[in-house]
Design a protein around this nucleic acid. Structure first.
Lengths: 119, 119
DNA sequence: TTTATACTTGCGCAAATGTTCAAGTGAGAG
DNA sequence: CTCTCACTTGAACATTTGCGCAAGTATAAA
């Protein structure tokens, strides 16, 4: 299948590479996964997420206090997280309340905490 | 404790914000966590990680084949992942073999896969 | 209606990120 | 020794990112 066409390298173990190609998920799915991880890779966004884990529902004001950047920045990131399906919002009068959209996130955080604490 | 000094906002629920501040992890730990998530947030790095999950050990050549960017790019990202403690390497002659450093990563991937597939 | 408040959004900028190119390292073959 | 191969590294570059500013929307109060 022309492995060498990708680069000039010759020492490839074709069997291994073949196995990986067959077993690994599709490019598009990996892409979505990477994009999802990006949600957690920024300090502001991660603070927002962790705050919403402690307190189920917070308005943009409260989040601004907790995170410590401008309300504009928080709002930008909230849109990002909303588009990604990590948070949802509920309007009530002038206020907008945000909360986490699902519970897998606690698991995620837990797993990573374990990784960080070991070694 | 002067919440209003952070920004001009007035509609803050001080009790909620206080609770979050007390319960949330320390800034430094959040920072490390964000940095860790960054490992998984890039397509090249994620492909490397997923490839090493399928095939326990791969040389830089093989990884280059799988990922589809230059060997230089792969090498840069491998250093990044090594510094972060996600992968380790083993030299044997001219070849360098990389593998995942710990098993929590499978859990992580599994949790995220679940999240992505639902809704 | 006018004013204030809670939040959103477009724009521009500075900083961070990922890639390639080209040079460099180190091990093995000839 | 020289040459090749597998890999690493530093620099330059383009792209992406996250932020604040300033203007805008929507709701509520006066």
């Amino acid at each position: 299948m022309g492995y060498e066409e990708v680069c000039g390298v010759t020492a490839v173990d074709r069997r291994k590479v073949g196995r990986v190609r067959r077993k690994m998920m599709a490019e598009e799915q990996i892409s979505r996964m990477a994009y999802f991880f990006q949600a957690f890779s920024d300090l502001t966004r991660l603070k927002i997420i962790l705050a919403l884990e402690v307190e189920k529902e917070l308005c943009v004001c409260d989040l601004t206090m907790v995170v410590g950047v401008s309300m504009s920045a928080v709002s930008h990131q909230l849109r990002y997280l909303r588009n990604l399906g990590v948070v949802k919002n509920r309007k009530q009068g002038k206020m907008v309340y945000y909360s986490l959209k699902d519970e897998h996130i606690k698991e995620l955080i837990h797993t990573v905490t374990e990784h960080i604490h070991e070694e």
